[in-house]
Computed example of a mutant assay.
Amino acid sequence: MFPFRDHNPSRTTPWVTLGLIVANIAVYLLMTLPLNDLQLIAFYQEYGLTPARPEASDYLTAMFLHGGVMHLAGNMLFLWIYGDNLEDEMGHLPFLGFYLATGVVASFLHVTTSPGSPVPLVGASGAIAGVMGGYLLLFPKAKIDVLFIIVIIPKIWPIPAWIVLAIWFALQLVNGAASPAAGGGVAYWAHVGGFLAGVIGTLPWFLKEGAARWWQRTDGHPPHPDAHYGQLSNTSIPTVRRRK
Rank of each mutant, 00 (worst) to 15 (best):
V69R: 03
G126L: 05
A124W: 00
L173R: 00
M90G: 04
V111S: 01
V22M: 10
S236Y: 08
Q231F: 14
V105W: 06
G176Y: 07
P3T: 08
V174P: 01
H191C: 12
L147F: 01
G68Q: 04
A56V: 13
R11F: 05
H228V: 14
A227L: 12
S117F: 11
L33N: 06
L35K: 12
A212H: 05
M132Y: 03
D88C: 03
I149Q: 06
F64R: 03
P238W: 01
E46D: 14
L147Q: 02
S233V: 14
R217F: 06
D88S: 10
P34A: 07
I41Y: 01
Y44S: 09
L86E: 02
V240F: 14
Q231T: 11
I21G: 07
P118A: 01
V199Q: 02
W205R: 07
Y188M: 11
G103R: 00
L35N: 07
N75F: 07
N234Y: 12
P115F: 10
V122M: 02
A56L: 15
L35V: 03
A178V: 06
F4V: 02
R53A: 15
E55Q: 15
G183E: 12
P140C: 03
I200H: 00
K208E: 11
A197Q: 02
S107E: 06
H221K: 10
P9E: 03
A56Y: 06
G198N: 05
P225M: 08
R11L: 15
M31N: 07
A187P: 03
G68P: 00
K155D: 05
H191Q: 13
P154T: 02
L121G: 10
I152R: 01
P160E: 07
I149R: 01
R241M: 11
A52D: 14
V27A: 13
E87A: 00
V27M: 13
L72G: 10
I150R: 00
G230L: 14
V105F: 12
D58Q: 15
A227N: 11
L30V: 14
F148N: 05
V151K: 02
A101V: 13
K141T: 04
F139T: 04
V122T: 13
Y28N: 03
G74L: 13
P223A: 07
L79P: 02
I41F: 07
W189D: 08
T12M: 04
N85P: 02
P34C: 10
S117I: 10
N175S: 15
P9M: 04
R11G: 15
I237R: 07
S57V: 12
N75V: 08
N24M: 14
Y47T: 01
A197S: 02
P204E: 04
A190V: 00
G123L: 11
W15I: 14
G68L: 08
S125W: 11
G134C: 09
A142S: 11
Q45D: 15
T239V: 14
T102K: 00
G230S: 12
Y99N: 02
P120A: 07
L121R: 11
A161V: 05
V111T: 12
D84R: 12
G210C: 11
M70G: 01
N175L: 13
Y135M: 08
L29M: 12
V164I: 03
W162F: 13
V240G: 00
G133C: 09
R243P: 07
P9V: 12
H66N: 15
G133E: 03
G185I: 10
L40E: 08
G126E: 03
G116P: 10
V164S: 02
W215G: 04
W15E: 02
W157R: 09
A23F: 15
I144R: 00
G183N: 11
